[in-house]
Design a protein around this nucleic acid. Structure first.
Lengths: 115, 115
DNA sequence: CGTCATGCCTAGCCATACTACACGTCGACC
DNA sequence: GGTCGACGTGTAGTATGGCTAGGCATGACG
């Protein structure tokens, strides 16, 4: 029953991943997914059905700007880069991620409770 | 407009928090929220509208068992404790959380990309 | 010719965290 | 006596956003 219906990501983390990845270099969607898998040593994998809607969402919010261009292999692809707003947003999300992980780390470390 | 639709937690983390908190000691709902806020030094705060549905959900999945009892102040309250299945689930969620944070940490640490 | 990697996309499901509210008891304070 | 805050539980309704599963097009390679 229910072989392993594990989900890969948590809501909110995908934005952070994309923004961070694009903060280094403009990439097209397909390459973003590859980069994330590679950089995380395959710990994280982004399905296309999550990736593309997310890119459109981020673009609509004005955090990314898209432009069609040619890949190294001569194909047309949509390259995304961070806007100024996107870079700002990345800062916010980083802070939020830090707060969250710190909070959870504190709780997980809580082995015994003093009075 | 969307004033500031900030969310506090990420999907999935609430279960982990509750399971971990109850793995130390049986508590009632209200106390769980307080404990989480306290243990995380107020970094994390669980709204009641998130907490109670989550408790019912976890109980339905068989991870928690509930029982009415009296608090120290003499009030009736519903005390939750981990079941064996819940303890197992906690292990799974811990592993998943670890994988996720490691993956994201790798990506966030990615300052420059070699070929 | 078939199949795989590259590249983009969408519809629809579904889990779940949130706001906002409602209800009840108790102690303190004016 | 009335009100307020903390305690304690709960619901309805909404929105977010990741997922599965599909489709489409090109080029390389067997």
């Amino acid at each position: 029953m229910t072989p392993t219906p594990k989900s890969d990501l948590l809501q909110g983390t995908l934005d952070l991943l994309i923004l961070k990845t694009l903060s280094l270099e403009a990439l097209h969607g397909y390459a973003i997914a590859q980069r994330i898998a590679l950089s995380s040593r395959a710990l994280l994998q982004v399905p296309q059905g999550s990736l593309y809607p997310a890119l459109h969402r981020l673009e609509n919010k004005g955090w990314l700007a898209a432009e069609w261009d040619q890949t190294e292999t001569g194909r047309e692809a949509k390259f995304y880069k961070l806007t100024r707003k996107g870079r700002l947003q990345l800062g916010l999300e980083l802070a939020d991620w830090k707060r969250l992980t710190e909070g959870i780390a504190l709780i997980l470390a809580n082995v015994g409770e003093p009075s």
